[in-house]
């Protein structure tokens, strides 16, 4: 009798997984806006939607980072094909988080926005992380991936800096108890530890 082999993910499985990611990410994002605009997000829908999209972006960022080690451990090479999609949804949630803050909280009060973006350390840190995510999102377009060649990999290793900045942004933004941000930081460090080899030779210019 032949030894049963581990089932390998087919292209169809990847497609189904991608559809599931699209469905879940869009459902939760659209749902929170529906609840917000119809006043079903508690006493302060502004705070609620800013928090939801922020924590959602961090969850998606950690999922994105989990894809590579997961595919290695499970010997499912095709799994990495969902990484780009998760990363782009992370960027989408992060963009929504920033837009919510500017639109509903600061309400395009430009002097206030300028002050908050320059003088508040946790907001500066968050903005830096967002700029990195923005660059990564733009350069994930296939022609740009090809054009950048080996430099693409270097640029995209900035995701490690982004996730640490996001953890700092989260920790700095809470009023008293930092348990939840610390749990996120611990998960982040575990995910970074799986990349020991890459991080030991960090950001060396590929020659």
């Amino acid at each position: 009798m032949p030894v049963p082999k581990t089932r390998v993910m087919s292209d169809r499985h990847v497609l189904l997984l991608k559809l599931l990611i699209h469905g879940l990410c869009l459902f939760f994002l659209l749902r929170v806006y529906y609840l917000g605009f119809s006043d079903q997000l508690g006493g302060d829908p502004v705070k609620a939607i800013i928090h939801f999209t922020g924590i959602g972006a961090l969850n998606l960022l950690l999922l994105t980072l989990a894809v590579t080690p997961l595919s290695r451990w499970s010997h499912q090479g095709r799994l990495v094909r969902v990484r780009r999609l998760l990363g782009l949804y992370c960027f989408t949630y992060a963009a929504a988080h920033l837009v919510n803050f500017l639109t509903f909280d600061l309400q395009f009060n430009w002097p206030l926005i300028a002050e908050e973006l320059t003088e508040r350390p946790y907001i500066v840190v968050g903005l830096c992380a967002f700029i990195i995510l923005l660059l990564l999102a733009i350069t994930s377009i296939p022609p740009l991936v090809r054009a950048l060649g080996r430099r693409w990999k270097l640029l995209h290793s900035w995701i490690y800096i982004a996730v640490l900045l996001v953890c700092l942004h989260f920790t700095w933004s809470v009023k008293a108890d930092i348990t939840e941000p610390m749990i996120y930081l611990a998960i982040t460090l575990v995910l970074l530890a799986t990349r020991g080899r890459q991080l030991r030779r960090p950001f060396s210019w590929p020659g």
């Binding site: 806006y33 917000g36 605009f37 119809s38 006043d39 079903q40 997000l41 006493g43 302060d44 829908p45 502004v46 939607i49 639109t103 509903f104 909280d105 600061l106 309400q107 009060n109 206030l112 002050e115 908050e116 003088e119 508040r120 350390p121 946790y122 700095w172 933004s173």
Partner: peptide
Amino acid sequence: VDHPRWSQASERRITRGGLGSDER
């Protein structure tokens, strides 16, 4: 006098309604 982490110069007034109904 600002809070070290945010401005106290303005406030979001919560009255009624969903997203977009508060005034700063």
